[in-house]
Design a protein around this nucleic acid. Structure first.
Lengths: 138, 138
DNA sequence: CAAAAATTGAGACGGTGTCTCAATTGTGGC
DNA sequence: GCCACAATTGAGACACCGTCTCAATTTTTG
């Protein structure tokens, strides 16, 4: 989970201005749950800074992704969501209720090397997604 | 890669009618490349059966997914794409040119058990996605 | 203080996925 | 082969999403 101070500081350090709109977005990211999408960020952000507009949310998220402070992902739906770049990148998704658990364990590192060899790819990152039914929904 | 005959047969067996529209969609799935999205299926399908409509493509794909003959996935973009349910479920994506290689190797099976234990999930399937730069784009 | 640069909100726009509805079509029973 | 009925269809309406433009505002700089 990102910290307001940290995100804000890095934004400023990268040469971006700390405007109320951007601070509202950052605030939402810090206090809101995980896996927020643009719309959720917009709605929550407007409670903090009512003038906040959709375009600004998109622009701010672009910056945060560019600076590798947040990471975009698609959890089996057409909506882009965001997680802190620091957090675990792997997911356990309940296909019934949508609950998503994030974890870090990863046994894919050997596989990364194999694939790099076989296909000549430079692999930068990877994502594991497990899908099933959670305890409550069984 | 699915076979027309096979998909068509299973559709009929499940109680669905074999209409020209559905056959066109199936034909595209069989002959077209991998990772097709609705729009690509529509365009290719209309070359076979010009009256084919967008709604029918969506409906047919819903059925095929329901019957577990095809599998939907999102490759880091808001567009849903489809792969044969039988094929490999893991991907190597070039972030520069978009080329996607599909493979089957999987070292995640131990991880599946661990996660099932830890979180009480019944895990049905999983997806690995590796992202990097392919030979040509380096 | 003035000019330039960065950022913004509002709204237009094209594309996508969903839905409705009247018209058409495939199928099993005859 | 034909018929009646249920399934299926295409067309278009609709809401929503992501992108873009642009004029207005704010911030920084000289």
């Amino acid at each position: 989970m990102p910290h307001v101070a940290e995100l804000a500081h890095k934004l400023k350090k990268a040469g971006y201005k700390l405007t109320p709109a951007r601070l509202a977005v950052i605030d939402v990211l810090e206090s809101g749950g995980e896996h927020l999408c643009h719309n959720q960020i917009l709605e929550a952000g407007q409670k903090i800074y009512p003038k906040l507009s959709r375009a600004t949310v998109y622009r701010t998220m672009d910056i945060l992704v560019e600076l590798k402070l947040m990471r975009p992902l698609y959890l089996n739906e057409p909506t882009q969501r965001f997680v802190s770049a620091a957090g675990g990148h792997h997911h356990l998704v309940c296909t019934r209720c949508g609950q998503t658990i994030e974890f870090d364990d990863c046994t894919a590192n050997e596989l990364v090397d194999q694939l790099a060899d076989r296909y000549g790819f430079q692999i930068h990152h990877h994502l594991l997604e497990f899908r099933g039914v959670c305890v409550n929904c069984q």
